[in-house]
Design a binder for these strands. Structure first.
Lengths: 347, 347
DNA sequence: GATTTGTGCGCAATCGATTGCATATAAGGA
DNA sequence: TCCTTATATGCAATCGATTGCGCACAAATC
């Protein structure tokens, strides 16, 4: 089965010229016929279409792209593609774009600003028709994005955005989600709610912190800054943060983490100390990572409606391309997140 | 901040002709200078390179692609991109390709054969230089893949492959992984080990079943066909399968599932019945989905080395492109999976 | 000094498709 | 019959970069 095969070279080079030769007409006519140009007779149209089928003609999209100045490619840059949230957004984008005959190029920034610049430049070199980005944690200098806009290339931010730049964007209502989650904790009778957050210069984390504070204030609960811990909110950070709270002897009866990873880390440590969840401590995360469903108890969290977010972002790209490539009127779509209440906060 | 901006149209159209005009030479010379052609004087090379920098020239990759017949694009088709395994493979591919100045187009087949054909044809239309596929569950007709090979377009299968076609491929040693997991269960003293499998016409599942059987045989344990359950192995299937075993009163003290989802489903049901894991029943999955680390007890599983798999697949693509695009000598790389022993099988 | 060799660069075709501007033929109008 | 107006198609430029061939001019060889 694995032996050498005799294989012919039919590197399928059929072009409109082949069709033209076959029919004794010119490539112009073939091109027009295939594009259903009104000035071509029905008769030759039929002839051309039949001939195209017969020799299995497929237009060379590269040539089309060069001539038309449109590559029908969309570039995506995300920190990493193998994170459930990002891959789900990509899924949404791909699905929407695919239906419209657009293809999607992905590239990863690894949350590194230099790498992010590189990949975006690479996408521009590839002549993508538009770019969709979830910016990295380090991103500060926005001139690159400004120049993308100045060149009339549709640019869409999603999830992680920057408000200093008038760029069309799709986000979820982070503040409201955090508010609702915190309120839920309060309704469940938790009163000393800690919060895990990340660098709050990143908009989404600032927003979530805000929602948390709002809910507490609404319930007349005094804010305790020592209960607000900043970290990268990965697994290990969650462990450390909760350990810190325990070591300090901080009285807390719930934790709301801006990341699911952080909360799982906390859960692991608490279980070691035989803390009962949710009876003694309630735990809520953010992101609806698949694993939150399978921990025990299952974790309360926020679903970021990632696939719809991808679809909206893609839709926005097409809108921009057609109507406002220079983003004179950037749009902002705010999706409603879904609060997922599970056992970890139900006592 | 969101008001209208005055934005100039610098749709950056700098071409080699602009450089040529600026310097009073021809585009040919500019092209050669930029490509470091030996017949161009060092002096003009310097002039050209400086001028290129000055006007911020970037080669139009579309034009380059048309002229050279190489798009520097790699197409990937996976069933769905938002599954940890696939997105991790994509991550590996992207990382490797990116280092070599190649870009990656992704498309999803949704495990639907028609869709799979469509996306592969779309990738061919986009003139990708190569295609990497993890075939869908339905895929039967392989003529499309054969024709890709016949056209001299490097094709690489990964994970889900088909052995009827001599295509270069990267897989893991599924049989061995299953064998080792089963052996581990046996070593832990489990004797009545059930197995969840999927349609065994899909190679990977057949292999895993085989490894399971081998280990049992090695330990002189009689195979009980009633302990081998076939399903789609999603969460719900896992629940049903284990319920089925319970209803039938089958005596089993361990389950090895070919999918992590299946085993989590089983775990949920068993917990409802207050079955002690791992004391009464040991549980092992396959795939090392992120959630397996966070269940309690944490699940024993098999890591499919997805990122390395992506890198190997990408490496294979470049090899094929350079040396054997028509795959007269298809290669097969078998990666060693990593057995991840966790609490769910340690009693 | 005549001839060969080498250096540096331009001309024009090419990749495949699209499109503005003719042109040729047929059909319609005066 | 002559002229206008459609209708159907061809010609050639274009998108931006690459490359075989050729042509100057200079340097080297005899």
């Amino acid at each position: 089965m694995w032996e050498t095969h005799i294989i012919m070279n039919n590197k399928s080079k059929t072009t409109i010229h082949d069709i033209a030769n076959k029919l004794g007409i010119t490539a112009s006519t073939v091109s027009r016929a295939l594009n259903n140009h009104p000035r071509i007779s029905e008769n030759t149209k039929k002839l051309v279409i039949d001939a195209a089928k017969e020799i299995n003609y497929k237009p060379n999209q590269i040539a089309v792209a060069l001539r038309n100045g449109r590559s029908k490619l969309i570039g995506i840059t995300v920190p990493t593609v193998n994170r459930n949230f990002f891959s789900s957004v990509v899924r949404g984008i791909e699905a929407y774009a695919n239906d419209r005959d657009y293809k999607v190029i992905i590239s990863q920034s690894y949350d590194d600003y230099e790498k992010e610049k590189e990949t975006i430049n690479a996408l521009l070199d590839a002549r993508v028709d538009g770019i969709m980005v979830s910016i990295g944690k380090q991103t500060k200098d926005l001139s690159l994005f400004q120049s993308v806009i100045n060149r009339g290339i549709p640019l869409v931010f999603f999830d992680r955005v920057n408000h200093e730049l008038p760029v069309s964007q799709v986000v979820i209502n982070d503040r409201k989600a955090a508010y609702l989650i915190t309120k839920h904790l309060l309704q469940q009778g938790y009163r000393n709610i800690a919060h895990f957050t990340s660098a709050t210069k990143i908009n989404i984390y600032a927003e979530r912190l805000q929602g948390y504070l709002e809910a507490l204030t609404e319930y007349g609960i005094e804010i305790n800054p020592e209960l607000i811990l900043e970290s990268n909110m990965q697994l290990e950070d969650g462990r450390k943060s909760v350990q810190q709270l325990l070591d300090k002897g901080m009285g807390f009866d719930a934790i709301f983490s801006s990341s699911d990873y952080g909360i799982v880390g906390a859960m692991q440590v608490l279980r070691k100390y035989n803390v009962k969840i949710p009876q003694e401590v309630g735990l809520a995360g953010f992101g609806n990572e698949p694993f939150t469903e399978f921990t025990s108890p299952a974790l309360t969290t926020v679903d970021q409606v990632s696939i719809p977010m991808g679809e909206e972002a893609a839709k926005m790209f097409f809108d921009l391309m057609e109507k406002d490539p220079y983003q004179k009127n950037p749009k902002k779509i705010v999706l409603e997140p879904k609060i997922i209440i599970r056992e970890s906060t139900l006592r």
